[in-house]
Computed example of a mutant assay.
Amino acid sequence: MEWFDNFWAIYSNLVLSLGTNGLLALSIYLTLACGMLAMANAAFMGIGAYTAALLTMNAELPYPVALAGGMVLPAMVAVLIGKPTLRLSGVYLAMATLGFGEVVRVVILNTESLTGGALGLNGIPQLTQWWHVALAVVVVVAVLMRVRRSKLGRAFEAIKEDEIAAGLMGIDVNNTKLFAFVMGAALAGLAGGLNAHLTFFIGPNEFGFDRGVEILTMAILGGIHSLIGPLLGSSILTLLPEVLRGFSDFRLIANGIILVLIVLFLPKGIWDPVGFRRRFGRNRKGA
């Protein structure tokens, strides 16, 4: 097993990043599944990362407690900002949540005594193991599968299709959207906490606009009509820089091009089970 030991020594961070990025893609999937273009997931990831890191470094709390704190604080912040902002929709909601992300970045930069400011937070204990990430992904996917098949999941779909009609059917639109927003914030915070204890360093630039676009691209690339889509999209965008290592300076340009191409030619993403069935059905009939 020497080959595996060598592989793991070189690529362990990349493999574990597949899991944390998968959680991020699932976090924005929740809001997109409810018809909301909210771009605050990178900020929630940053809040979770700094919270979990400070709880282990300064408060010396156990790792599971720190991860829980990294989920709870973003969820609480999501409740506070969600009530006024979720009344908006479309590009206005995206702009409001992007503004919130910038506020979070500025707060991190100006609290140097706590967060390290522009220099970032260094020396975070490397506590994240492979099974932590694997367990988190499995549990989150299992929970979201139950949600999709539940009354709540059907409410998400109804709101995405027609918010007014969903309200007339008796769905509490505002609270349902807020619940999706808060769940997404908690997942992003979990991903941030796991990532902070994997890389041992975090900085404010990791959770800015670029990261927000990357998270959105993951979900849109894979498709938001099933849980497989966001995981597939996040895996592709995580592995792409490794495959194109020589073009790392053009990573953001590549993400933008991918997003435009997907919207133009595959608006439902790579993983589109309904489209697959339709095309397969036509092929069988033609045969």
Rank of each mutant, 00 (worst) to 15 (best):
M1Q: 12
M1S: 12
W3N: 11
N6K: 13
S17C: 06
L18T: 12
N21A: 06
N21P: 14
I28W: 12
L32Q: 10
C34I: 01
G35Y: 09
M36Y: 03
L37S: 12
A38D: 00
A38Y: 00
M45W: 02
M45L: 14
M45I: 09
M45P: 06
T56Q: 11
T56A: 05
T56M: 08
N58K: 15
E60S: 15
E60R: 15
P62S: 13
P64T: 05
A66Y: 03
L67S: 03
A68W: 05
G69R: 07
G70S: 08
A75F: 00
V77H: 01
V79P: 00
G82K: 02
K83A: 13
R87K: 15
L88K: 07
G90T: 11
A94W: 05
M95W: 11
T97V: 02
L98K: 00
G99P: 10
E102K: 01
V103N: 02
I108W: 04
T111H: 15
S113M: 09
L114K: 09
G117A: 03
G120P: 14
L121A: 05
N122V: 11
Q126M: 14
L127R: 12
L127D: 12
A136F: 09
V138D: 04
V138S: 14
V140D: 05
A142I: 09
M145C: 07
R146S: 07
R146H: 12
V147L: 14
R149Y: 03
S150P: 12
E157T: 12
I159T: 01
I159H: 00
E161Q: 14
E163I: 02
A166T: 04
G167E: 02
G167V: 02
D172R: 05
D172H: 12
V173G: 01
V173Q: 01
V173R: 00
L178R: 03
A191I: 03
N195Q: 15
N195I: 11
L198H: 01
L198R: 08
N205A: 13
F207S: 04
G212W: 08
G212K: 00
V213N: 07
E214C: 02
L221N: 09
G222V: 12
G223F: 07
H225M: 14
S226H: 04
G229I: 10
P230G: 02
L232A: 15
S234N: 13
S234R: 04
S234H: 04
S234K: 00
I236C: 10
L237V: 09
L240G: 05
E242W: 15
E242N: 15
V243L: 15
L244D: 03
L244G: 06
L244I: 04
G246Y: 10
N255L: 15
I258T: 01
L264E: 08
P267R: 03
I270M: 09
D272G: 11
F280G: 06
